[in-house]
């Protein structure tokens, strides 16, 4: 008679390290998450069917409210004061309310042009393109 083997492999998942893994994940999430720097402005952005993704690199960002307030790095400025405040950069993002007077935006564009900015990005919300595509 053959004696049966009584070796049994016990598979145990080490739960002791679970807390460490969980905390590591938690720290990763906290460190990598970014806080949105938008000032406390309620902006209704215009819609557009044509849009590009704005790259996440450091950009100068201006917020323009419905009433014409220009906010740069949490401070309010006048168009004429922007020239002295804006740093040398390549791209500027303008987030403006759709009800803002375009005249003000045009003045900002002129300021940016005189400060040798190369690109301007107008932030928009996506609009579903329902128009007939060109043949």
């Amino acid at each position: 008679m053959k004696a049966s083997r009584q070796y049994k492999i016990n598979v145990i998942i080490p739960f002791v390290t679970m807390a460490d893994i969980a905390f590591l994940l938690l720290i990763f999430l906290i460190v990598t998450s970014s806080v949105q720097k938008n000032p406390e402005l309620k902006l209704t952005l215009p819609q557009s069917a044509q849009f590009d993704k704005i790259k996440k690199k450091k950009n100068v960002e201006l917020f323009v409210s419905k009433g014409g307030e220009i906010i740069f790095e949490q401070d309010r400025y006048d168009v004429n004061d922007l020239i002295s405040v804006l740093p040398e950069d390549e791209q500027c993002i303008i987030s403006a309310d759709k009800e803002t007077d375009f005249k003000l935006i045009h003045n900002i564009i002129e300021v940016l042009k005189n400060n040798d900015y190369e690109k301007i990005a107008f932030t928009v919300t996506r609009k579903a393109d329902i128009s007939i595509k060109r043949k």
Partner: peptide, 19 residues
């Protein structure tokens, strides 16, 4: 954290300014 996180993707119309 996962549930409350928002994937913040910005879209815009980009144009080049003349020098």
């Amino acid at each position: 954290f996962i549930v409350t996180a928002i994937f913040f993707e910005r879209t815009g119309i980009i144009f080049r300014l003349p020098k």
